[in-house]
């Protein structure tokens, strides 16, 4: 029975983490958080006045940690009060995630308005519709991220036997998913989509920072189109990275051949395999596409 619960927990945790990654990246892109945030912030200073939603809450890790921890804390207190079967956990997580979404909306709106108020010298106008149209979309992705991270924390605590409390696991998950979202997923939006008029993959030299694309297929670009675009690649890659992290980490609980050291051994072997795979991939890519170009 314990083995079935562990297997089920591993599969469920991996699947939930994959979904959470997709939603987290879409949430950050709908609000231009993290890396794109600085690019959108700089744009009016060099004459690119825009209609993006720019949600400067903090780096993605602390922000996601707050949404996940608030949702998980409320769910944890509700289940402690009303009982903790699977159905109560689901309902409690939904209530917790809804509460943390309200917080996200408040922080998001306050930051967007504040940043534009500090842009007076560069004649950036505050358009209410460019805040109020993407905000519900952003909140929806934020809700799904917080909900899934809370469920994941409950799965890790219950099915996988993690000794920490549910809110603490949610805090770790929030920080981790934020870090992955801002390092893996954001590149696609911050360095590619915002700079589509530069050669693909050329990065962002200091001299072109802030020279972002402000116009779309027709009219001005808005922050509702951004997740529609990034969902095809950035979101999935974030989901893959976070999903693999949680799924492979859960394997360390499946075996018991070396006592308490089992987890360390299993994870070390997995890290070694991943490193070898990455090395071989790099060698293959360089052989096929040539060396890195000199500046």
């Amino acid at each position: 029975m314990a083995a079935i619960s562990l297997l089920l927990g591993t599969a469920l945790a991996g699947f939930l983490a994959f979904l959470a990654g997709i939603f987290e990246d879409s949430e950050s892109n709908a609000g231009s958080a993290s890396n794109p945030n600085s690019q959108v912030q700089l744009a009016p200073q060099i004459g690119n006045r825009h209609r993006y939603f720019n949600k400067a809450i903090s780096g993605e890790p602390p922000a996601n940690a707050l949404w996940a921890t608030t949702a998980a804390t409320i769910a944890y207190l509700l289940t402690a009060h009303f009982g903790g079967d699977a159905f109560s956990v689901l309902i409690a997580s939904i209530i917790g995630a809804a509460a943390s979404t309200l917080l996200l909306c408040a922080y998001g709106a306050l930051s967007h308005i504040s940043r534009i108020a500090s842009m007076k010298n560069f004649e950036q106008t505050l358009y209410w519709d460019s805040l109020l149209t993407p905000l519900p979309l952003d909140a929806a992705y934020g809700f799904l991220t917080a909900l899934i991270l809370t469920l994941l924390a409950f799965a890790a605590h219950g099915l996988l036997g993690n000794p920490f409390s549910v809110p603490l696991i949610a805090l770790f998950f929030g920080i981790t998913i934020g870090a992955i979202g801002s390092s893996t997923g954001d590149i696609y939006y911050g360095a590619e989509r915002l700079y589509q008029h530069y050669i693909f993959g050329s990065g962002i030299p200091i001299s072109v920072q802030g020279d972002i694309d402000v116009k779309g297929e027709y009219g001005y670009r808005n922050s509702v189109d951004t997740p529609y675009f990034t969902m095809r690649f950035g979101g999935l890659v974030t989901g893959l990275a976070f999903g693999m992290l949680i799924f492979l980490d859960a394997w360390s609980r499946l075996f018991t051949f070396a006592g308490v050291w089992t987890g360390v051994i299993v994870v070390s072997v997995l890290v070694l395999i991943i490193l070898i795979f990455i090395y071989l991939l790099e060698v293959y890519t360089r052989k096929r596409y040539g060396r890195y170009a000199e500046d």
């Binding site: 912030q41 602390p62 940043r115 409390s165």
Partner: peptide
Amino acid sequence: DYGLYPFIYIIITLAVLHPYNASTGAGE
């Protein structure tokens, strides 16, 4: 309840770091 410590920490963190981060700009 130790379970609430992470919540207390992170909610205070955001409330103190956010005001300046949100207002950054030449007109701050």
